[in-house]
Write a protein that binds this DNA or RNA. Structure first.
Lengths: 147, 147
DNA sequence: TTTCCGTTGCAACCGAGTTGCAGATTATCG
DNA sequence: CGATAATCTGCAACTCGGTTGCAACGGAAA
């Protein structure tokens, strides 16, 4: 990822581009799918987990990333490609592999709308599919789940 | 709930109806929507949380209840009305209130199907909506979130 | 340069979930 | 019925991801 681009991205989201935040952002960009706080701890090597935690919280509040709950006990995140609070039809589904623990973004698969009963005010939607991913199905043994 | 009915329900699911399990089942039946391990700890009063935990795990494995991940950090459960591993169209959506922390079963709202990319083997689906529930919207102050 | 305020690292903490183990309970068999 | 085996339960301790308090750091403004 381009340095300049990252800085502009943060500024566009009203986030002060500090050194640590740039490091975290660059680490995030290297993931194809979702990533966890622990993933970033490994990927950045130098940044403390509490700083990563606060960075993630900040980024999420500024709509730079989405929070993905995959039921693994570990919160996952994925970069948002929009600059604003996404509407349901801009969101995609996620797939959590029960064998290897990876959580995929099904970018092409948008979340179908539902008719929520009257009176409920909708803010966010999560559509999560669980099962076995193509990788694990072919190499039938599979990897151990990393949670 | 009828004692006899509960016993038969457990037997039908290949679960030995012990005293503790009957107590937990009766407690579960008293919830309209979803409940957590902590909820059952309070509701049963006498049963230890590790026993409840093992009971929940067992019940879930025997398709007596569904696991609902609402992103609150606490796992929620709801009773399954079928005797088997539910197919996607038998499942309903859930609504998590960000203010009071309650998670509702939208029994009438079934989960819409998606076209999962080829190669993914689907086991379970979760459709979770977050926002503010009718209760909290009317009494605009709302209750404090209980997580 | 000095001051100030947001940011960061460290260490301690929190709480839901999970497990090992010994004692209690239930089922099985003679 | 009594002995034995298998299962279940409560207790206490532990795990681990997430979260927070606080002091030190760093960079912008005065």
């Amino acid at each position: 990822m381009n340095e300049k681009y990252g800085e502009e991205l943060l500024l566009r989201h009203d986030i002060r581009p500090t050194a640590v935040r740039m490091l975290v952002l660059q680490a995030m960009e290297r993931f194809d799918d979702t990533f966890s706080l622990a993933d970033l701890e490994v990927a950045t090597e130098t940044v403390d987990k509490s700083s990563i935690f606060r960075t993630l919280t900040l980024f999420a509040a500024h709509h730079l990333l989405h929070i993905v709950e995959d039921g693994s006990g570990t919160t996952k995140y994925c970069l948002c490609r929009n600059d604003h609070d996404c509407t349901p039809d801009e969101l995609h589904c996620h797939f959590h592999c029960e064998r290897c623990g990876r959580t995929y973004c099904l970018e092409q698969t948008h979340i179908p709308a539902i008719a929520c009963p009257a009176g409920f005010e909708v803010h966010q939607i999560n559509y999560l599919v669980k099962g076995i991913c193509p990788d694990c199905r072919t190499k039938s043994g599979g990897t151990e789940p990393s949670r």
